[in-house]
Design a protein around this nucleic acid. Structure first.
Lengths: 170, 170
DNA sequence: CTACATTCTATAGTCACTAGAGGATCAAGA
DNA sequence: TCTTGATCCTCTAGTGACTATAGAATGTAG
């Protein structure tokens, strides 16, 4: 059975050596076997676990969520009800991410297409993700979007008198 | 034209007040107009921009990447070649995320299904993301996966000096 | 056996927030 | 009008998740 030094693991998973040690320190990875000279040695299983962590992080999942999923995988004998509720909740999160990612993809693709036809990209990219704005469902007219987008000045403050807002209490 | 106080913006976008101020401090958001009493006032456009940032962050994009995309949207007159290469690169990243997210989704769905049939979830969840392990194309035989998964002992004797996590939520 | 790479622990730094102190302003009710 | 509580301001310090560095031990190729 093949075992790997921490550097091998880092190379194979794309996770930095120091990050692997960090994961061990917070208990996300088990303490590995050590050689006689105190060096960590890892088996195949850890490579999988670590890759899983890496991908999950890259997809924006937080460590407590990953810990929970790993916990599920660690104890297949756990209460099915627990596993089910955890899994279902995570499913919702994934679906939401998928939706938004697809919206973003479509808009960026559109930008590339527009570009390749020699015209210039508009700022629909922002609208793509901004529109399905989670909790408080708000939508704005197309005209507004375009008008808002067309700002020529990148980041500066625009001329706008101080207007009173209309109070919206919770 | 409606303007909003920072708290209104926070409520509408789901981004914390302090985070909005932080984004301003790093130049991701423009400096807003102020009232006579020095309070920030925001317009519609900022709501979109902020929602975009929020969703992007939740999808795991880093601030420099977001800054780049916002820059594209800010200056539709920028070099088409630049915009194109930035957009294409981001497209690849998105596709990779989509793929992995779908793999994870399928496996978690499978877990829920298995559960609902009264059987217990296996650890395929981890394999789902571990397999397409990016840079170094590695694959393991199905037999290996299952063998690796079937570990009866959860974590090899849970690391003892483990830091207990505080109940944290967002 | 030497030279250089890798590993070890421990500590400090970075990025992206997030919370708190201490004080000013606002909005509504008595 | 005065009070009260929510909201805002700036500034500083803390957190989560890494990431880099120092200084020492160990591994390995020539």
């Amino acid at each position: 059975m093949a075992t790997f030094a921490i550097g091998d693991v880092a190379r194979r998973t794309g996770v930095k050596v120091s990050t692997i040690r960090y994961y061990e320190s917070i208990g996300l990875l088990p303490r590995p076997e050590r050689t006689a000279s105190n060096r960590r040695t890892y088996g195949e299983q850890l490579l999988q676990r670590l890759s899983f962590i890496r991908h999950s992080r890259e997809l924006g999942f937080e460590i407590p969520a990953i810990r929970e999923l790993l916990g599920l995988a660690d104890s297949p004998t756990a209460s099915c009800a627990d596993a089910d509720s955890i899994a279902r909740q995570r499913l919702h999160e994934i679906d939401s991410k998928l939706e938004r990612l697809q919206a973003l993809r479509a808009e960026i693709q559109g930008m590339v297409d527009t570009c390749s036809r020699g015209r210039v990209a508009t700022c629909r990219v922002i609208a793509a993700l901004a529109e399905n704005s989670a909790d408080q469902g708000r939508e704005m007219a197309s005209a507004d979007e375009r008008a808002g987008c067309r700002t020529d000045r990148p980041l500066g403050g625009r001329p706008n008198g101080t207007v009173r807002r209309k109070a919206v209490r919770r």
